[in-house]
Design a protein around this nucleic acid. Sequence first.
DNA 1: TCGAAAAGTTAGTCTCGGCTAAGAATTTAC
DNA 2: GTAAATTCTTAGCCGAGACTAACTTTTCGA
Lengths: 150, 150
Amino acid sequence: MTCDSSSTEATDEPRLADSRAEAFQEVRSARRNELAEDYVELIAELIHEHGEARPVAIAARLGVRAPTVTKALDRLAREGLITRERYRSVFLTEKGRALAHECRRRHEIVLRFLIRLGLDAETAERDAEGIEHHVSERTLALFATYADQA
Amino acid sequence: MTCDSSSTEATDEPRLADSRAEAFQEVRSARRNELAEDYVELIAELIHEHGEARPVAIAARLGVRAPTVTKALDRLAREGLITRERYRSVFLTEKGRALAHECRRRHEIVLRFLIRLGLDAETAERDAEGIEHHVSERTLALFATYADQA
DNA sequence: TCGAAAAGTTAGTCTCGGCTAAGAATTTAC
DNA sequence: GTAAATTCTTAGCCGAGACTAACTTTTCGA
């Protein structure tokens, strides 16, 4: 017997009735975008700092090997976030630039928040890197408010 | 098993000199453990609530299909976090119980913190699910302190 | 200028984490 | 006590993301 609360499942589709399940699904969904966000954010940074984003620099910053970057960039291009030509630097599309901007915004809010909370800069940077992909807009707003408190 | 390279840069091994790269590597390393942590934490909950953890319940709570659970449990067993017999419930090993306890602790601190910050319970639960795997001990301590403030 | 070094790509492997379809084991219900 | 329903596993597919080895292209410097 289903000891679970009798909810409105029992349909032909045994499709995940549990409300808790939704949280996990959202987390998994977020995880799927994390890499793309990391790349796009980094590419924007590199372009800003050095005028261009070369795969070798991306690999160094992310701590992965070159072929990993090549494959990831292929995917980003497929998704319309970047444009590139073989053996050349990478550029963000309008869509990619928008995403990068969004990511940077989140990252900075989380970072400022953590530092405001009393965390050292180094740890704050590391934690922000992990957390930024998992904060809802609502939470982000609270972070921003707290960080801006006098 | 992150064979994480130490610091020596500029050696023959073109191993990730950038200090920023370390942050990404840590994030990736954390990501690899997330699933295991989710499972173990959930298994502990189910045992507490229903006296046993059945794969079908795990699947429902996580919002995945049964075979996905079977495979994941195989891996957890390989890693020594659970024990099981075919067609039976799942049990945590001592190691698994320790990890579950640790996860629950993190989860609760993050959750209490978010709620204390003013977030609604539902969003807090969702965000906590994503954030809990990415907070350092140091950050967690700050969260706890803040949450406990009168 | 041209040859070596650096950068980038391709090909192939591995693990993980999803899925479906189908079959085996267990439990339930009559 | 057996048939049906449920649960669990197996087999096989797929894409992502990591890697190495080996090859091509580009860049640099003597």
